[in-house]
Amino acid sequence: MHTEADRTPVTTPLTDDLVRGALELEHTGRGVLPHRLPGWARAQNTDGQLAMAEAQPAGVRLVFRTRATAVALETLPTKRVYVGAPPRPDGLYDLVVDGRLVDQATASGGDTLTIDMTAGTFETVPGPPGTVRFAELPAGVKDVEIWLPHNEATRLVALRTDEPVAPVPKSGRRTWLHHGSSISHGSDAASPSTTWPALAASLGGAELVNLGLGGGALLDPFTARTLRDTPAGLISVKVGINLVNADLMRLRAFTPAVHGFLDTIREGHPTTPLLVITPVLCPIHEDTPGPSAPDFSTVGEGRLQFKAAGDPAERAAGKLTLNVVREELTRIVRQRSADDPHLHLLDGRELYGEADVAELPLPDQLHPDAATHRRMGERFAALAFGPEGPFGTGA
């Protein structure tokens, strides 16, 4: 339940000890901006899509202990508008109390980012901050998490409560560092705490750091070095779909790039369980190369879809498809695991495969819906965090 009554006189500085899941907090003149790539990595990036994705706080949440029953978070979101596409819903903020999702809210105001996918242009119009309010929280001391919108860049302006707050000491839970594409980022999930990695982390009892980057799982060396340098007890990388739908490289470049990516991670995590996940099923790109292109034919129905614009005949020249990627990732992991017993492989089709397509088709041909995110999260928890899984206690 939300209220406009001002019952939140205590203002708490937004510091690192209250924020989980971000690798860096940038203090700006308009609030604190969580980043999921460090500044040195951002300085090496020239891709506007990746810059937008890493500033969207997937998996980032405020975590504090308090007796407060009213909480207000003033934020400055960045709303996205795609030219020619249906309007996007505002990003959701999930309120989790003692591990249970109890409320959700949106923030008004904010900047507006207009994106023309056909022309490849971006334009930002500044706007005012808004306030997310949660009231009637349970009485007594409790641990509160506010999960920030996974798909909407969010500057944190002020945290106000009706009682003081304190940081929550880090538990003994293992940190799970995950890297992947927009599916891992959370595209089309219902809310930030219900993306498939967030659900899997909750079920697996892990502390999530989500480096799922929409459109940005491209084997960039600065991403590998970020994974190398980030403390973690468990690591997974989900590779493939972005390389295909961006039509970024051919098989000759893909193989050494994967080896180099894994080599770099191992420099910082030589014995950490490392799980390579092949792509989930995506019918348009199983045997057809990229690039992916927007299909505006369904916009009149309120839907934007994507199509594969490549030619299947180009596979002979080394163009990547999802089946090509799966086959080569399997070969690479089998080769490397002979000397690396902590390296593991998961076929992404075990998370979403042929049997799921008829029941839960990809609405835009690329991204799973909310029900599929839940299914994938539950399956990953069972396969990876189960007793015999690579992240399980019996592994």
Rank of each mutant, 00 (worst) to 15 (best):
L281V: 04
T46M: 13
V102T: 14
E267S: 04
M249S: 07
L281A: 11
T393Y: 12
L92H: 10
E74W: 03
S193M: 02
A358T: 11
T8V: 02
V141E: 15
R379G: 12
D6Q: 13
E54V: 07
G240M: 00
A206F: 13
T75E: 12
R155Y: 10
T118I: 13
A166L: 13
E136C: 10
E286M: 05
S297Q: 07
E163R: 11
V237D: 08
E152V: 04
D188C: 14
E26L: 13
F261I: 00
E350F: 07
P13Q: 04
G180N: 08
L92G: 03
R133G: 06
D6M: 11
L92T: 06
L281P: 06
L360D: 14
P126D: 13
T15C: 06
D162A: 07
P128E: 15
R65H: 12
V144I: 11
R228F: 01
P128I: 02
I277W: 05
L366F: 03
T154A: 09
V280S: 11
F391M: 09
E4I: 13
L234P: 00
A253S: 12
A43G: 05
I265P: 02
P270F: 00
V97D: 10
R42Q: 15
T194N: 11
V141S: 14
P34R: 01
P312F: 02
P164Q: 11
R334A: 15
R334V: 10
H373C: 06
G84F: 07
V60D: 07
F296V: 07
L320F: 02
T230N: 05
R36C: 09
L360P: 11
V132C: 01
D143L: 02
V96D: 08
T271V: 13
S182Y: 01
V102P: 01
H27F: 09
A200S: 06
E350T: 10
P129N: 08
A246S: 15
A308W: 00
E136P: 04
E54G: 00
D356N: 07
P197G: 04
L37A: 08
P38H: 09
T131Q: 00
R349T: 14
E145P: 03
A198C: 08
P89H: 02
D16S: 14
K79L: 14
P279W: 08
G140F: 04
R80S: 14
R315H: 12
G394K: 10
P361D: 09
I241H: 03
T78R: 13
A395C: 13
L262D: 03
G21P: 00
D287F: 09
G140A: 04
P126G: 04
V209A: 01
K307A: 15
N151I: 14
V165I: 15
G300D: 15
M52Q: 15
G212F: 01
R30W: 12
L203Y: 07
T8F: 02
K238W: 11
S193I: 02
T75R: 04
E123G: 12
G140M: 10
L23P: 08
Q44V: 07
M117K: 08
D311N: 13
A135Q: 14
A382P: 06
F222C: 12
Q365M: 14
D6S: 12
R374G: 10
V96Y: 01
G318T: 09
G99L: 05
A105T: 04
P169G: 11
